[in-house]
Amino acid sequence: MNFSLSKGQFFLLLFFIETGIIYISFQTPLISESKNKAWVLFIVATILHYLVLLFFERYYRYFYLNTFFQWVYKVYWFLMIATFLAYMVYVLASWVLPQTPEWIIILFIVALSLYGNISRPETVINIGVMFIPLIFIFIIFLMLAVPDLTWTNLLPLEFNNSKEIIQGLIRSVFAFMGAEMYLIYRPFLQKELTLNYKPILIYQLVIFVFYLISVMFSQMFFTIEEIKLVPEPIIYILKSQEVTFVKRLDIFFVYIWLSWSIITVLIFNLTIRVVHFGIGKKGSKKAIVFYHILLAIIPLFFVKFKVIETMKNSFHYIILIFTFLLPILIILWNKWRGKTCIEKQ
């Protein structure tokens, strides 16, 4: 794997990793656990995330994965992608394609990922660019819901229930899933580019605004009792909007979300490829094909309401461990030993 990233590409990758797939749904567990103060907790979580990114930037050289941890991460990402594929198929099946067999949809998505991943790495890195305009459209149409929002739903803010606060904070990590890939891709950044707090802050602000809109909108649009019933609040908001030329916005946006999530799947698989084949080496196509065959089979076992529910109710702990705790531990451990990651040649 040999490629270099500009700042724009680097943050674009991170943006797609963090927002893909979960953008339409992470609000439900967050709001139903932490009630009206969800948005405040989310702001706190974003600040924490910014601090973690700063920490990552400062010590990314120490993020050295030995073979064991490489496999830990590879397996973790693989299972992650498999469950997210299952989730994507589940959403598609419940919103737009109820009759189409799951394996066909998974097959198509995995085939796309295979096609993207046997191409040069630059393909996967840059394909997201074409979807930036769609994401703007997403936000613009979401704004149509503004007249229907109930602003009083943001209040009252009571911070006396510590269980709700902790749960809210933990569930916010859904939004920042995949932040550990910052460490994976950081060495590929062009050598002469330095990142200080400012570009990270700008990135953080973009992603923060993007997410906060979704959290606040779903909180103001639904009552708390209601949002417990609505697993994909963002699509549901779009469903209730009507513009003159299109009656059902949700159908379009499910598909926009789908293409956006396909990009995320592509990037996740690229990451596995990067970690597996290492820097500067050319990977074997056979391994990539084999990996994708696995990826086409495993998710089929997960496409069930029960599994999806379990995933929603427990994944934040797993993400918390692998995205934040483990990298920090590895960094601290390597720093203590004084071992640094091999820099890009």
Binding site: D148, F221, F222, T223, E225, S240
Partner: peptide
């Protein structure tokens, strides 16, 4: 009003 707003209010005490 539309159907969604009615549903939303039904869940609000």
């Amino acid at each position: 009003l539309n159907l969604q707003m009615i549903g939303s209010t039904l869940f609000d005490n």
